[in-house]
Design a protein around this nucleic acid. Sequence first.
DNA 1: AATTTAGCTTTGTGATCACAATTTGGACTT
DNA 2: AAGTCCAAATTGTGATCACAAAGCTAAATT
Lengths: 234, 234
Amino acid sequence: MAAKAEIQSLPEVPRPLDVTSQEYAYRRLRHSLMIGAIDPGRALTIRGLAEAIGVSPTPVREALRRLSSENALLVLENRRIMVPEMTTQRFEELVSLRCCIEAHAAERALPYMSEIKIDELEAIDARIDTAFEAGDLEASTLLNHRFHTELHAANPVPVALPMIESLRLQLGPFLRVAARYAQEYYTVDRHKEIITALRRRDAIALAMAVESDIRDGVGRLGRNALRKILGEAA
Amino acid sequence: MAAKAEIQSLPEVPRPLDVTSQEYAYRRLRHSLMIGAIDPGRALTIRGLAEAIGVSPTPVREALRRLSSENALLVLENRRIMVPEMTTQRFEELVSLRCCIEAHAAERALPYMSEIKIDELEAIDARIDTAFEAGDLEASTLLNHRFHTELHAANPVPVALPMIESLRLQLGPFLRVAARYAQEYYTVDRHKEIITALRRRDAIALAMAVESDIRDGVGRLGRNALRKILGEAA
DNA sequence: AATTTAGCTTTGTGATCACAATTTGGACTT
DNA sequence: AAGTCCAAATTGTGATCACAAAGCTAAATT
């Protein structure tokens, strides 16, 4: 009996005392996916993950079902589970859909935006700049997520949020790979424009700023990486 | 020991031989939700559903996790699971988001639309009219779903489809209730406009037609129902 | 009569076990 | 040396059981 070939080592996340094993497995898997700790195309086994996380197969299965419902994982007809691979077409679809939904969600959140909330967003943006100048890409992207989430969450009925997070989860693993291929980080941060539009209560400008922020940021990074990755393969 | 208070009777769905119990439970629950067989606000128990479906609790739990990831079900902090209730605000958010995504998805599918595909859509639309005139609301709404799905599925990378279906699932239970309150069915069917826009390859007209179709159909029906329901309550 | 409390039931959760299907590895044949 | 076939291991699946928390009912206390 050979030793288990590959005991996945998943990044750890804090576990509050009252969260269920299923929820903990979900969070840990989700975080691993988001930061690109599991490569696209990688096959996952329930028992392997259960051992890595330290719980029984049952809660792991439930976590995997959740993730596949969010399209963060793919269940093949072999019933095997893997991280979806990125293609040029899928990337373009994901980015354009994310622009569409986030612009819409921002417009919908605008009427509920208080000046205090805008101040908070401005503070987060300042921290993003600080983190970026310090070269802390980890904190920078995390704060960037935070900025967008806070923006949309101003809406008291955030039905768009789960969908935006699903898109982030689908883009996450690939963007981490993409970051390795980027020689320079285009920090074309449209957050200043977003905040200006918020203060002016200008819905049109807001939607355009949000769309530009995503298209010029995520879109450009991913496209460049895809060009290089596909160039290498050929 | 009193008999079980409420053995849910869920609408049956065909079960192919090769589908897992988990998948079967999912489909049956999903279908029940979609046609409004389970009232909003209704609490669900794992054991009760397992008995109703005829499987053990394990696959039911997995199905419930999937459904809650799609926001078709709500897990309370008591860990109890229920069908979300509809509010005016949530309804408006769902309808506007659905307009936004479906218009976008239709635009994205347009370049992949063949004349044959458009013919098929036209055929489905004809069947919708037939079913509607025959008073078969069940078939009519089912075919309406089919029409929209076929439209979006022309895109070879349909990343928007799961989100659209999630929105349908969130609106489904309520719309069934709403239909009871509608004295007359506004059959303002914009499908003819959609097909014309497709044939002309007019992306703008297509997006507008899709948006109008949803806003004038689902939106109007739901708003009227909400007005009456809330009027009764007051 | 209202409120608290005690005990029972129901419920979600998760670990374990058994089973079937798929996969894997190597030995055998050609 | 390449392909085929059989056996062992791995994997997904699902039922069952045990446990703890939450809910409910009814009795007892104030």
